[in-house]
Simulated assay, not measured.
Amino acid sequence: MSDLVERLRAGGWRMTAQRRVVAEVLDGEHVHLTADEVHARAAARLPEISRATVYNTLGELVSLGEVTEVATGGRATRYDPNTHHPHHHLVCAGCGVIRDVRPGGDPMADLPDSERFGFTLSDVEVTYRGLCPACAPS
């Protein structure tokens, strides 16, 4: 489970009603919403919230490193609040659903020195693609 709201409070982020509702909408495990989905869910809780406020808040959360943008190849960017819990993504090529996965091993160590071209690695992003049970042929 994401601890986004608690992290933001602990970090002293000014928690307006609009910011709070965006953070609450994003909070949770396997949460990978588009900006429009965040806006729709936030507006259900706080009808006066504007699309611009949602976009600005998402941008600020990304800048703070509290939310990451997840690109899923040709689909709308999604926002992931689980930035402090190392994980990869499993993406359905059919419907686009995303799940957080934590396979064993160290992906940083999986790249041999001969393939690093002198780079000093700082991060690894792995995306597994396939079909979820609802999209897979029977």
Rank of each mutant, 00 (worst) to 15 (best):
residue 136 A to I: 02
residue 114 S to I: 05
residue 53 T to W: 12
residue 102 R to M: 15
residue 78 R to T: 12
residue 78 R to D: 09
residue 78 R to A: 03
residue 63 S to Y: 12
residue 129 R to I: 08
residue 13 W to I: 12
residue 30 H to I: 06
residue 50 S to I: 03
residue 122 S to Q: 07
residue 62 V to P: 10
residue 70 V to T: 06
residue 27 D to I: 01
residue 105 G to R: 00
residue 23 A to D: 01
residue 12 G to K: 12
residue 65 G to I: 10
residue 14 R to F: 07
residue 67 V to G: 04
residue 95 C to P: 04
residue 53 T to H: 13
residue 59 G to C: 07
residue 107 P to A: 01
residue 27 D to Y: 08
residue 76 A to V: 04
residue 128 Y to E: 11
residue 41 R to P: 00
residue 106 D to M: 02
residue 44 A to M: 10
residue 44 A to T: 05
residue 15 M to T: 14
residue 56 N to S: 15
residue 130 G to F: 06
residue 125 E to P: 03
residue 10 A to K: 15
residue 71 A to Y: 13
residue 40 A to L: 00
residue 59 G to Y: 08
residue 60 E to K: 13
residue 40 A to D: 10
residue 11 G to M: 10
residue 128 Y to K: 02
residue 88 H to K: 05
residue 28 G to C: 13
residue 96 G to M: 01
residue 131 L to M: 08
residue 68 T to P: 01
residue 137 P to I: 00
residue 12 G to Y: 10
residue 103 P to Q: 04
residue 60 E to A: 10
residue 124 V to A: 13
residue 2 S to E: 09
residue 132 C to M: 09
residue 24 E to N: 03
residue 117 F to W: 09
residue 17 A to W: 04
residue 94 G to M: 07
residue 68 T to L: 12
residue 12 G to R: 12
residue 25 V to H: 05
